[in-house]
Design a protein around this nucleic acid. Sequence first.
RNA 1: GCACCUAUAGCUCAGCAGGAUAGAGCGACGGUUUCCUAAACCGCAGGCCGGGGGUUCGAAUCCCUCUAGGUGCACCA
Length: 563
Amino acid sequence: MDFKAEIAKKISGLVDIELDKVMELIEIPPQTNMGDYAFPCFQLARVMRKSPNMIASELSGKVMADSIVEKAEAVGGYLNFFVNRKEYIKHTVREVLEKGEKFGSSEDGKDKNVIVEFSSVNVAKPFHVGHLFNTVLGSALERIYKHSGYNTIKINHLGDWGTQFGKLISAYKRWINEEALEQEPISELFRIYVKFHEEAERDPALEDEARAYFKKLEEEDSEVTALWQRFKDLSLREFSRIYEALNVEFDSYAGESFYSDKMDEVVQMLREKKLLKDSNGAKIVDLEQFNIPPIMILKCDGATIYATRDLAAAIYRKRTYDFYKNIYVVGGTQSLHFNQIFSTLGLMGFEWSKDCVHIGHGLVKFADKKLSTRKGDVVFAMDVIHEAINKTMEIIENKNPNLDNKEEVARKVGMGALLYTFLRNNREKDVVFTWEDALNFDGDSGPYVQYTYVRGRSILKKAGNISDAADLSYLSTEDEFQLVKLLGAFKDSIREAVERYEPFVVIRHVTEIAKAYNKFYNTHPILNAEDNVKNARLQLTKAVGTVIKTGLGLVGIETPENM
RNA sequence: GCACCUAUAGCUCAGCAGGAUAGAGCGACGGUUUCCUAAACCGCAGGCCGGGGGUUCGAAUCCCUCUAGGUGCACCA
């Protein structure tokens, strides 16, 4: 039973507003003593030509107490509803226990395909913290969409094509250390790539050589293609370790090379629609009507460019997946690029261009100079992951040296702390990364929430067999009610996260639940309570654990059983 | 120069399809352990919501303008 919906029905029966509209208008009062749901009467005031206070007051007299609502009060233009606590608690806790990990899920996205493009790393280049943030964010979004019933398609749009591969092959021929390539492929490839740029400054002929190699690659020269494939395989092998650590998998790795033979058609379409224009020898699409710079389709030498590939990719995806939404999780620095792509698709007559959405995010910045200076200006994702786990291990040795399976716990908690710091805020904000904050396990943090779960699990283990027949009406304190209310609002947080493409909404809500449980835990006995109360509280503990585990899972954070 | 993003407590941030007394966490200070994991809990302090205009019964929230910071603006991706 959805109490909010039931209350909306009551209101809708009393005033001349549609049910859906009432649902939208209903708010949660800022103070708990004001009630559980509030209906603002300000909009009604205009139509009814009465003061909001008067309307609220009149309505309050018409609301009858029943199993849903205990009473309704008029306060300053708001009609505040107090739910029937006993019923509310019973329904909500029971629903969590029945649905388990499915709690909070919905069928909002039934039969809708949603593409989430994220991670999209460049082959032969380091997987740095920026990619880590992107991957963590994209993966969280995908999980949240999936929980809301959408069919999601995870695409890793690999940067595996372009002139840099010509450079890489040229560099390989000159300076490769085969042994290093097998040991640490990315480091070695990156080393020769950087060396290429250094050498090319002195000897511009190298650039020509690189172009020639890329041309060979495009012509599918067997030797060059084999090298390219090897670079790709080695890179993916190394990246897979990071994806493993993050528990991330993809449905498709169709990257730029995949579209190398699908661009002629796009150029042809643009030409037919007379959208292609000459500009200094290059072919562009003018986007002045959108007040943005033109987009380049073909370079002076007739070669394609990444914009051309992105257009081809979007069209391919529509044909292949018939997406409801095509989500690009890519750094905010590329917002102009996507604006150009989507505008161009619109000009081409694809009405689905409105279903393409760029989900931008901020940069990762380091306040600690130590990490950022270690190897040039790139901070490797793997280094950060290892560091997080190692430092967590130190903390465990310090706080709980007798813990079993320390390694597993260190991994879950360290990763939890890391993911939490990336996902706790609005994604557009830059992540200012400091180890001090990332590994501060107090308060608002991944480990704080995990710890709450662990405490609950510990109690349940001690309790042994738990009777499912507990009478939940023994959950009668204010703390318990506030806690259950948060459980009930879990699905609202998921819905909001979906609408806003913001995982932080979920993570914050789960943190609120953890706070409420800790408060409850500290002020009320569970195992030592009188039997009826104990059984009810154990059920509540179970329900809280379920929601925390599900909520953390939605953003990719695992829950240890001990810590 | 143009476009986009950001500006709220000492720090990091919520709140912004206008609405009730602007909220958290960290840090600071002071408490809680014969009791289920103190990685916890409780209390206290801390604010011209970047400045200035406007719209409104009502603005942190919407509009204009200014300031400061960030990002981007064709032959890389």
